[in-house]
Design a protein around this nucleic acid. Structure first.
Lengths: 235, 235
DNA sequence: ATTATTAAGTGTTTATAATACAATAAAACA
DNA sequence: TGTTTTATTGTATTATAAACACTTAATAAT
């Protein structure tokens, strides 16, 4: 150990920006930090990378710790490593963003962490540079969602077109013509129409859809034809 | 110091994938690793993050060390942190990719590192997980170049349309109709036509262009209209 | 001087995709 | 039975992308 002499070692942390959608607005999950410094202040869920795990594994572990969820969409966002970002000791932090189905989120687990969902428009003051991480995550989810079908990760396995549209409108903070929306989304071939309806939102009821998972993986790079598959790209 | 007890500290490195364009093919700059382990094998240029610098600063420093260049395009790519990626001691590495004007590259500096340019199609076997880093960088430069005008960073301040087209064709490994290419590129308003010509490539000579830097920064997010500005995106 | 050679530069037509826009249908409830 | 509410569906127009070939400028050769 310590064969590269004269080099500093530092702490490596992981912080997760966890997105959820409650049917109306896009939210992120924050906790009250349980130890010093900044104990009791709002923070992203995080933790230190352990000796026996990769950074990706650390992120999965931390996400499961808070939400109880496995196998959710989790993507490395950016690594933050300014010298003074943690006042106690030099720590670099790899930020990940996660998209979860908010209905599968297990409240009882998070009681230990005093977790709360906050709408993107009303994020409280956060510890360290977590504000900056959240801003980067907001930019990334918009950017990525404009090109790839990631927003389905925020919905339950069965969802309706109106639900999907509200989600897109919420993420991009805009309104979309529903005729054009359904045309474009259905034209991707990613959705399978089911026979039952969701009667919660209206008297008539809206048909449920589910993802065609084969098409989903095949078309992940080319969703909405905003961009052809970068590996076969012709200008 | 060491106030977060019981946590491991580890080494944090930076590795740079440096792209250059010689007028014909896209290349990356590799060095012969100068110390153990894997001494003498081909490697990305890298180094450890120092106590007094941020990760971004470390990347700039390492890039300048090899190329002599300041203020070049440098973007954080991904952080690699599998437990066994460095056999000597646990090291996480933040990979950056850089785009430089190959003609400004100072050969004499790199003699110390035994650096060489390799075409993307003929990358030798690399140390550790550097192969994986290069693959990620290749995907990223294509993805980003399809949406944003980053490829200009690879050209000298004055360049011709044929040069630019060859660059795009090289990056995307395709051929482009020159009438459509010039129409699209000029329609962005990013280029200023100059009065002098480059006579090197043909008898007639091709007009030089340079970037309109104001438009460049303003339109960076919306180049080619592949994607509207994500911050004002309407679907 | 004329001709040949080479790469640069330029327009139009067609096809495809995006946008704007409103009436009808289904179910529940009064 | 009518009223209310939300889901569902189509067309006309506009904008963008793609396909396609000839002319021009400069040099080199005869």
């Amino acid at each position: 150990m310590h064969k590269y002499s004269k080099q500093i070692r530092l702490l490596l942390a992981v912080d997760c920006i966890i997105f959820g959608f409650d049917g109306e607005t896009l939210k992120i999950l924050l906790i009250k930090r349980g130890f010093q410094p900044e104990k009791g202040n709002w923070s992203l869920m995080g933790g230190f990378v352990q000796p026996n795990e990769s950074i990706d594994q650390a992120a999965s572990r931390i996400l499961k710790q808070l939400t109880g969820l496995d196998g959710v969409y989790l993507e490395q966002l950016h690594t933050f490593g300014d010298t003074g970002r943690d006042p106690i000791e030099r720590t670099a932090s790899v930020a990940y963003f996660a998209l979860i189905d908010i209905h599968q989120y297990e409240t009882q687990l998070s009681n230990d962490y005093h977790a709360e969902w906050f709408p993107l428009q009303h994020i409280p003051k956060l510890v360290f540079d977590h504000q900056e991480m959240v801003e980067a995550a907001k930019r990334r989810i918009r950017y990525k969602a404009a090109l790839h079908p990631i927003l389905f990760e925020l919905l339950p396995p069965k969802f309706t077109l109106p639900q999907l549209q509200i989600l897109y409108e919420s993420v991009f903070n805009t309104t979309i013509d529903k005729r054009n929306f359904s045309k474009r989304v259905l034209a991707t071939g990613l959705l399978i129409k089911l026979n039952d309806k969701d009667k919660a939102g209206s008297k008539r009821g809206a048909y449920y859809y589910q993802l065609n998972m084969q098409h989903y993986y095949a078309k992940f790079q080319a969703f909405l034809n905003f961009i052809p598959n970068p590996d076969t790209l012709h200008l």
